[in-house]
């Protein structure tokens, strides 16, 4: 097996202006914050971000790196709304494609299976379709003839995720309660990078959790970054919970440019 270890800056260097970047995790849970910090320090811009959004989205928006967001929501979980993302939207700095959460899953799944779309009822009757006119409907070819939403494949140039453990070649393990949709983000992307709390010998993975926790195999991963506390300040259970104090400071700093500059430089440097 190949050793795929690299640094967060190596990952950031793969991301170029105008690319579509998928970010794993969910809300303020298991976000690849160490990789995001490296991206924030780079000069990359005009990104399309695909994410079940949390502070990843707020930070990238505040840094002016986002042109377009594809999402089901942006929330910090314990704090419902992200003020940095809200400001970007309300000032017209970021375009948003707001999908139903399940539609986002379906779009990533379609891309990961090389399908043009997957059908669903989710979205019918709502304003999702009116606000995202590129999303079309399709008629069932069977007797029912039902009209369904054809969620288009959401293809990613690069995906980044943070997991609990991996070996050096990218066999990775989640030890918390939910994988979220990390496997689909990796499956939907041309280039796939993970950070992990700890890189361990392959034989040690099973000691950390059952075979069912080893959902990400090395065929889905191009590079592995060892980044202890690499999801902080979001949660990465069981390794650590969310740093609520720091998240509260992240939110409070939105109200004052000086406070934001101080917070941002502390976070990124």
């Amino acid at each position: 097996m190949r050793d795929k270890r690299l640094s967060a800056f190596d990952v950031a260097a793969e991301i170029r202006d105008g690319m579509t970047l998928g970010v794993g995790g969910w809300g303020s849970r298991r976000k690849p914050m160490a990789l995001l910090r490296a991206i924030l320090r780079s000069s990359v811009k005009d990104l399309t971000i695909v994410s079940y959004g949390g502070p990843d989205v707020g930070l990238l928006c505040a840094a002016g790196k986002v042109r377009r967001l594809v999402t089901g929501f942006v929330s910090l979980d314990s704090i419902p709304l992200d003020p940095h993302y809200r400001a970007a939207r309300q000032q017209g700095r970021v375009e948003a494609v707001e999908l139903d959460e399940g539609m986002l899953q379906w779009g990533l799944y379609a891309a990961s299976l090389r399908l043009p779309f997957l059908p669903t009822r989710a979205g019918l009757g709502s304003d999702v379709l009116a606000l995202a006119p590129h999303v079309r409907t399709v008629r069932s070819p069977y007797e029912d003839g039902e009209e369904l939403v054809a969620v288009p494949a959401i293809r990613l140039d690069v995906a980044i995720c943070h997991l609990n453990r991996a070996d050096a070649s990218g066999n990775a393990q989640f030890l918390g309660p939910d994988l979220y949709f990390d496997d689909l983000f990796l499956g939907a992307a041309a280039r796939r990078f993970i950070s992990v709390e700890q890189v361990v010998p392959t034989a040690e993975l099973l000691a950390g959790g059952s075979i069912h926790t080893m959902k990400i195999h090395r065929g889905l991963v191009d590079g592995v970054v060892e980044a202890p506390r690499g999801a902080h300040f979001t949660e990465c259970v069981p390794d650590y919970g969310r740093d609520e104090a720091m998240q509260a400071r992240y939110v409070a700093a939105a109200a004052d440019p000086a406070a934001w500059n101080a917070f941002y430089s502390e976070l990124v440097s």
Partner: peptide, 16 residues
């Protein structure tokens, strides 16, 4: 938006 809220979340899929 004048005020950006949560997003669609699961509401379209739930209700249908």
């Amino acid at each position: 938006p004048k005020a950006q809220l949560l997003g669609m979340r699961g509401a379209p899929g739930n209700t249908i």
